[in-house]
Amino acid sequence: MADFGAVGRADASAERIPVAVLISGRGSNMAALVAAAQADDCPYRVVLVAANDPDAGGLAIARTAGIATFALSHKGMARAAFDAVLDAEIRRAGAEWIALAGYMRLLSPSFIAGWTGRIVNIHPSLLPLYKGLDTHARAIAAGDTEGGCSVHIVTPELDDGPVVAQARVPILPGDTPDTLAARVLPAEHALYPKTLAELVRA
């Protein structure tokens, strides 16, 4: 007997916006995006997970989920040359959007220009505060009462693109960068899939 429901699900999946996710490490935000994409009403599907570190832990998560992966070390390669290879792989996968999920490498201006308005990133601070690294330590040192995360459009300037959404998390007395990071991470996992879905629907 034919499973017409399965055919319908396949057709719905094909209509979803294809997204490539770039990682450098464990890929927890990537995993959150992939998990959210399993919902019937999710408007995107992850078609590629790419890493600049072949040992990135998130690659195994993607493979287990049946998602194509690409990994190449950037070491010894010029930034533009590496990004050209990366761009080719992303386009070969058919992606229309790119989501950075712990991708710890600056993208070249030419790469970003080719995807203007279609690269998003999640950053562990309430931008425009604390661009770059060590965000939680900097927020605590400044005496802030709140930390959090921001989803923003990627531009050539580091963590400087338009902020699309934010989630706020209290900074508690006695917090360390590690305890604050542990409190912010679940907020990232909730905010990123929701925001990406809203962006690709627009």
Results as ranks from 00 to 15, higher is better:
residue 125 S to F: 01
residue 81 A to D: 14
residue 120 V to F: 10
residue 198 E to L: 12
residue 150 S to E: 07
residue 150 S to G: 10
residue 87 D to C: 08
residue 157 E to H: 08
residue 192 Y to H: 11
residue 166 Q to A: 02
residue 128 P to I: 15
residue 171 I to P: 05
residue 76 G to T: 03
residue 104 M to H: 10
residue 99 A to I: 00
residue 146 E to G: 08
residue 189 H to C: 03
residue 91 R to K: 11
residue 135 T to S: 15
residue 78 A to F: 12
residue 73 S to E: 05
residue 161 G to M: 01
residue 90 I to D: 12
residue 92 R to H: 12
residue 108 S to V: 02
residue 88 A to D: 15
residue 153 I to Q: 04
residue 175 D to E: 05
residue 120 V to S: 02
residue 183 R to A: 07
residue 56 A to Q: 02
residue 62 A to D: 00
residue 111 F to W: 08
residue 91 R to N: 06
residue 92 R to S: 13
residue 129 L to G: 09
residue 102 G to T: 11
residue 118 R to E: 01
residue 192 Y to M: 11
residue 109 P to S: 01
residue 166 Q to V: 04
residue 81 A to V: 13
residue 130 Y to D: 09
residue 64 T to S: 15
residue 193 P to C: 00
residue 80 A to E: 14
residue 96 E to I: 01
residue 142 A to W: 03
residue 139 A to P: 00
residue 170 P to K: 12
residue 133 L to M: 13
residue 201 R to E: 10
residue 140 I to W: 04
residue 115 W to K: 01
residue 109 P to F: 07
residue 130 Y to Q: 13
residue 166 Q to M: 07
residue 143 G to F: 13
residue 184 V to L: 11
residue 69 T to W: 10
residue 152 H to V: 00
residue 132 G to R: 14
residue 68 A to W: 00
residue 102 G to H: 05
residue 84 A to E: 10
residue 134 D to H: 13
residue 158 L to E: 07
residue 196 L to D: 13
residue 197 A to Q: 10
residue 137 A to C: 06
residue 116 T to L: 09
residue 71 A to Q: 07
